[in-house]
C-alpha cells in the first residue's frame, strides 16, 4: 500500500494518509491507531468464532443442549464482560481521543491567522482574500505556508463541500450559512482540492488547487495578484 502512495504524484494527490499539514496529520494518525485497534478486535472475534467449532457437531446432537447450572456464569462472561464492559472501555477511550482532536482542529482565535473566502457555485470556486480585498482568483486558492488559514466557505447555489485532503477534513458550503475551516500547509507547494458533496452533472470537474507560498511569494501575491 505504501508503494501506491509513493506512486502518486504529490501535486495531484488527494490522499488523506499523505498529510501535508497539521490537521490532516492528526487525522491520519487517528486513522492508523483506529486501524490497529480495529484489526485487533476483528482478529479477537474471529478467533472466538473459530474456537466455537472446536467440538464439531456429533451424531447425538439431535436433541438440543438445554440450560444447565453454568448458564448464569456464561452470561456473566459473555454478556457482562465481553458484551458490555469491553466495548464501553474501548469506546470511552476512543471518544475522548476523538473529541480532544476535534477541539484542537477548531478555528480558534490566533493573531497569526490569515482569512480567505471560498465561494462555491456549479461548478467552480471563487476565492477572495481579507488581506487584499480587490483580489479574486478562480479555482486556485493562494495561502501562505506554515500559517493557520481560516477559509470562510459559502455557496451561491446548491450545497458544495470544500476539501483539500492533504491539508484538512472537508466542510460543506451551505446556502445562507458561512462555515469556517482551519487549514494549514507545512511547506510551500501545490495541493489538490475537490468539491466533495454531489452537486450535479459537473461534479467530477469541480476541482481546485491550493498554492501555499513562502513568506516572500505570499506578499508578492497580495501586492501583484500573481504568484
Amino acid at each position: 500500500m505504501t508503494t501506491l502512495v509513493l506512486l502518486v504524484g504529490c501535486e495531484n494527490s488527494l490522499s488523506t494518509v499523505d498529510p501535508a499539514g497539521p490537521a490532516a496529520n492528526v487525522i491520519a494518525t487517528l486513522w492508523w491507531i483506529m486501524l490497529a485497534g480495529a484489526t485487533l478486535i476483528f482478529v479477537f472475534v474471529m478467533v472466538l468464532l473459530a474456537l466455537t467449532f472446536r467440538r464439531p457437531g456429533v451424531a447425538d446432537a439431535d436433541n438440543p443442549v438445554g440450560e444447565d447450572g453454568a448458564a448464569r456464569g456464561r452470561e456473566k462472561v459473555w454478556l457482562v464482560g465481553l458484551g458490555l464492559c469491553f466495548p464501553l472501555v474501548v469506546l470511552a477511550a476512543l471518544l475522548a481521543y476523538g473529541l480532544v482532536i476535534g477541539e484542537r482542529l477548531l478555528p480558534r482565535d490566533d493573531p497569526a491567522v490569515v482569512t480567505v473566502h471560498a465561494e462555491g457555485r456549479q461548478w467552480e470556486w471563487r476565492f477572495s482574500y481579507a488581506d487584499a480585498p480587490d483580489l479574486v482568483t478562480e479555482n486556485v486558492l493562494h495561502i501562505p505556508a506554515a500559517t493557520p488559514v481560516d477559509v470562510r466557505i459559502t455557496t451561491v447555489d446548491v450545497i458544495h463541500s470544500f476539501w483539500v485532503p492533504r491539508l484538512a477534513g472537508k466542510l460543506d458550503a451551505l446556502p445562507g450559512h458561512e462555515n469556517v475551516l482551519r487549514i494549514e500547509a507545512w511547506k510551500p507547494g501545490r495541493y489538490a482540492g475537490v468539491s466533495a458533496e454531489y452537486n450535479g452533472p459537473g461534479f467530477l470537474g469541480h476541482r481546485f488547487v491550493v498554492i501555499a507560498h513562502d513568506a516572500e511569494g505570499w506578499s508578492a501575491f497580495l501586492t501583484d495578484g500573481a504568484p
Binding site: W31, L95, G98, L105, G169, A196
Partner: peptide, 9 residues
C-alpha cells in the same frame, strides 16, 4: 469519530 469523518465522509 468526528475528525476522521471529516476526511472519510
Amino acid at each position: 469519530v468526528v475528525p476522521f469523518d471529516w476526511q472519510a465522509h
